[in-house]
């Protein structure tokens, strides 16, 4: 509990601390902070607009895949294997949705949590799964899109492998702890 309250304080104060630190250092070093700020901020619009084509490509493709029911089909096809590994059936879709869409994964997790209830193993496993990984496709689209990279090389494979590792480790650790 105390560990968490320490972390809470850190995350509450981190932003104000960083901002004050940067601005104060700037003033001490005689940097014209207002001018430099606005000069940097000018790029905000440009960067956001640059990302749009990349986001549209990836988010549309993933929305289509989710709407087609392919993820449910994949989860069903693999369920016989995965259930033997002690993974509750309701958590299965989370494994496949997590790398594709952050909001969808969080939505799935909320569904599981409300239907299975706070004490269920499914809730805990889904919580760890959702909390321990990132939305690979979104991160790739934003970061590469911002600088106009279209050849990702192995970045996608590393991201997806990391998602698989996160899912497997969640199952192992949760099976052990809860």
């Amino acid at each position: 509990m105390s560990f968490q309250s320490i972390l809470n304080i850190i995350s509450l104060w981190a932003l104000p601390f960083i901002i004050v630190l940067i601005l104060t250092t700037g003033m001490v070093k005689k940097v014209p902070v207002y001018e430099v700020f606005t000069e940097g901020a000018k790029d905000g619009f440009k960067v956001a607009v640059n990302i749009i084509p990349y986001l549209v490509a990836i988010i549309v493709a993933i929305s289509m895949l989710r709407a087609s029911g392919a993820i449910e089909m994949l989860a069903n096809a693999m369920s016989s294997i995965l259930i033997r590994l002690n993974i509750p059936a309701d958590v299965l879709p989370v494994i496949f949705v997590r790398p594709l869409s952050g909001s969808a994964a969080l939505g799935l997790f909320s569904d599981i949590a409300t239907t299975a209830g706070p004490t269920a193993y499914s809730t805990k496993l889904a919580a760890v799964m959702v909390g321990s990984s990132e939305t690979t496709f979104y991160v790739l689209a934003v970061y590469f899109g911002a600088v106009g990279i279209t050849k990702f090389r192995y970045a996608l494979w590393v991201g997806l492998l990391a998602d698989i590792i996160a899912a497997i480790m969640s199952i192992i650790v949760c099976g052990w702890v809860f």
Binding site: I22, V28, K29, V31, V36, F37, G40, D43, G44
Partner: peptide, 21 residues
Amino acid sequence: ALSLIGIMAFWLGIMKIAEKS
């Protein structure tokens, strides 16, 4: 992308100061 514009501008501005200082 549009929702990113504001916060992107803010942090790009702050980080520019961080870089210069």
